[in-house]
């Protein structure tokens, strides 16, 4: 089976509330695709639709070219973690995986393999109700890996993880993608996916706002902003303003120039004979780039909440 998730034109409304509004994107194998957006943007709903759990009013969701519901033993094709707390607290972690294995015709031995893989081998026979949120996340990932699927879909797997756990999860996701799997990971905190995601699907208000590689996005968000260090602050501002740039003072000797690429800034200052000691193209963090993108799409703004 091809390791892809293809989501095309999903629409879904709960009464008058629109949850999905033409959601369209594709997840390709070999890299981690970050699925980000503010709460309520439609990330979880989209994942439930892909898994055949929720119906849509329009659109299709295919896994490896097939609708999920047509799969006989779906966990062998798609591994998913939707909600790490979705387990019976009195059942042991091992039994929680065992019933899933039985439902796919997988041997109990596979359960022990994924427990070891996720570092839960020692606690597998304890009641899952006693697990920390981090252990539950690992158990959820173990469940997703049961059928050794080519496609993985994880909803907020970083929730509740300590820094060590976050580092483990990042490495784990990268390794899974490097094996050629398609990995879709949702998060509302972009910073968690720094250095992990190769591709980015940003959603807001039920549709895709940006579908881009991480490198391109950062480059785009960083462009045309230059940090300039100069002792001749006034002269520099005058010269740059004359050619249409927006200049702001950030520190005593530091200016931020918007609307002019770095090489043009150098030319303008040289022609005007303004001295400067340092010039640097600003490089946005993934988080800044993401905030830039979703500024218009954030469903509940702080101001609205405050009102």
């Amino acid at each position: 089976m091809e390791a892809t998730i293809e989501v095309n034109g999903l629409r879904k409304a709960y009464g008058s509330t629109v949850a999905l509004d033409g959601m369209t994107f594709t997840v390709t194998p070999g890299r981690v695709t970050a699925f980000v957006g503010p709460n309520g943007a439609g990330k979880s709903t989209t994942m439930r639709v892909v898994l055949g759990l929720d119906r849509v009013d329009a659109g299709t969701a295919l896994v490896g070219g097939r609708p999920y519901r047509s799969l006989r033993t779906p966990l062998r094709h798609v591994g998913a973690l939707l909600d790490a707390s979705a387990l019976h607290p009195a059942r042991s972690g091992r039994d929680h995986l065992l019933w899933q294995a039985h439902s796919q015709g997988l041997p109990g031995q596979r359960v022990d393999e994924v427990l070891t893989l996720t570092g839960l081998a020692d606690v597998g026979r304890r009641r899952a109700g006693g697990y920390s949120l981090g252990m539950r996340q690992r158990l959820g990932v173990a469940g997703a890996l049961l059928g050794d699927p080519p496609v993985l879909m994880l909803d907020e797997p970083f929730n509740g993880l300590d820094p060590e756990g976050i580092r483990w999860m990042r490495g784990f996701l990268r390794a899974l993608a490097a094996e050629g799997r398609a990995v879709l990971v949702s998060s509302h905190l972009m910073s968690e996916l720094q250095d992990t995601a190769g591709h980015l699907v940003v959603v807001g208000r039920g549709k895709v706002v940006a579908d881009t590689s991480v490198a391109d996005l950062i480059a785009a968000a960083s462009s045309d902003r230059v940090t300039l260090r100069t002792t001749a602050r006034t002269e520099a501002m005058t010269a740059l303003a004359r050619v249409g740039a927006t200049v702001a003072v950030t520190e005593r000797d530091t200016l931020t120039v918007d609307g002019l690429p770095a090489d043009r800034v150098v030319t303008v200052l040289s022609e005007a004979g303004v001295p400067f000691s340092e010039i640097a193209a600003h490089r946005a963090t993934l988080e800044e780039a993401y905030m830039e993108l979703t500024r218009d799409a954030v469903e509940f703004r702080a101001t609205e909440v405050a009102r």
Binding site: L51, L53, R69, L75, A80, L82, S85, A86, H88, Q100
Partner: peptide, 18 residues
């Protein structure tokens, strides 16, 4: 009903779409 209460029913129906 405990499956519904815990959300585990999604795991169940994801494992067996029918």
């Amino acid at each position: 009903t405990t499956e519904y209460r815990r959300g585990m029913v999604r795991t169940t129906f994801a494992a067996t779409p029918s």
